[in-house]
Write a protein that binds this DNA or RNA. Structure first.
Lengths: 252, 252
DNA sequence: AGTGATTTGTTCGTATGTATG
DNA sequence: CCATACATACGAACAAATCAC
């Protein structure tokens, strides 16, 4: 039994190729080997290769052109913004290995902007947790997260022990939560951000500001993350809303 | 009757202040006049001022602090990404005057990426429409839009005549459409983009790639827009999904 | 303009493993 | 243990698009 959640061979093929693309071993615009060659390389049938490639295509990693070949599209890491966004799941979906590193933790009074986002009075104590996110050893974000101390006493310790946010929140009686709002903007990095992201100072970073709320609508977390602009891409997918509309229309 | 969609007095106040913030006449961190002064300036009651400011707060343009005052937050133009996103409405909501300028129009065979987004065969003719978007005379985006010729013959001419996209689509029997997907990424501008956005070459731009589909799910438009990174901010608001959840929970 | 080589797209058939009841 | 359903995987043949000559 391996540690990876791979069942079929096609998933293994998908992960292998995705990994090569996302780590840059296969660069954009280059052509993938022919199906026949991939069959040989992985020792599987054509169905298996085609299924893997079909998935890579739907993930936007490759572009298939009949009669020409299959080409690598863009190695940017894709970060989906839905109300159900979970950081590590987003990465696992892309066949990348997420890893979080604690950098600093402190208890501070809420600043004006944090207090507003969490709907707390100004100065109310919050845990300020600074972390760095890695995917396959490569730094991809640097985040400042804030949690209300009064509601989650001891949160910092639980986090330090390595448990995931979802898990810890569950222990405080929050089985589920949703992403209420995400703001995205661009600016130049601070020296500290550039250092942690292994980025040069003249490369722009994307800033995402997010508020999570529990199922009653009460804010439980606010965070500002900084991402290397050249290595990520955000996407908003409204497919589920479209499906709702289609289902509704078919009633008539 | 004015050309602006303002109904109540509070909307007028909101628009006026929002306009000052978004055009930079009021810069971030500066303090707004006291409610009493605003009442005098606009010749309205306190209720009206408070309602306008409450809206500005929920839009993230100002930050209200009890006992201290109201402060301008960030002058970035906010562009909301929902399945119902409409360009000019987005701007009108913020009290800005949208204006579109045609730059180039041509009929070309679909490139690989355009064909994929519109789910057309490669080489299928599409209208390629290049435009520049302005808000209050200030350039805020530069877009390349693509529409299938076969489905919308004469679209380019209708657009040239100045009609809005929604209106033209309605004439082709598409009363409504939704935004299927939006991708957001950052890169440096091309010289042409920098020129049209009145931006220097070392300032990053945000690129948004969008696919609109009709109510049957068929793609009808694809566009790639470039925005000056320092002047805009994108936001994803899941409030409506939260309301759905709250309503569902209250059933029990 | 045409032909053949290359590459992906589609469809048929068959076999095996796994979960369900 | 058996029947059923489903996912997975291999093989093969032909269709369609692209490209080089």
């Amino acid at each position: 039994m391996t540690s990876k959640p791979s069942h079929g061979q096609w998933q293994q093929v998908e992960e292998d190729i995705a990994h090569d693309i996302l780590t840059g071993r296969l660069s954009p615009k280059t052509q993938l080997p022919r199906e026949a060659d991939l069959m040989e390389r992985f020792g599987v049938g054509r169905h298996t290769i085609r299924r893997a490639i079909s998935r890579l295509q739907s993930r936007g990693l490759v572009q298939v052109e009949q009669g020409r070949g299959t080409f690598v599209r863009d190695g940017r890491l894709e970060y989906r913004l839905s109300e159900r966004t979970r950081f590590s799941q987003n990465l696992l979906d892309q066949g990348r290995e997420p890893f979080g590193q604690a950098i600093r933790e402190e208890e501070i009074p809420a600043s004006a902007s944090v207090a507003e986002a969490l709907r707390l009075p100004r100065g109310e104590p919050v845990y300020h947790i600074v972390r760095r996110g890695l995917a396959d050893e490569e730094p991809i974000n640097f985040s400042n997260a804030y949690y209300p101390v009064r509601r989650f006493p001891g949160f910092d310790k639980a986090r330090r022990d390595g448990r995931s946010v979802s898990l810890i929140l569950a222990e405080y009686g929050i089985p589920d939560y949703i992403r209420l709002r995400t703001d995205i903007l661009v600016r130049m990095p601070t020296p500290e951000e550039a250092r942690h992201l292994d980025l040069s100072l003249d490369k722009p970073v994307i800033v995402s500001k997010k508020v999570d709320v529990d199922m009653k609508g009460t804010p439980i977390a606010y965070s500002e993350s900084v991402w290397p602009g050249e290595r990520v891409q955000f996407s908003v997918d409204n497919t589920s809303q479209l499906l709702d509309v289609l289902a509704r229309n078919s009633d008539f």
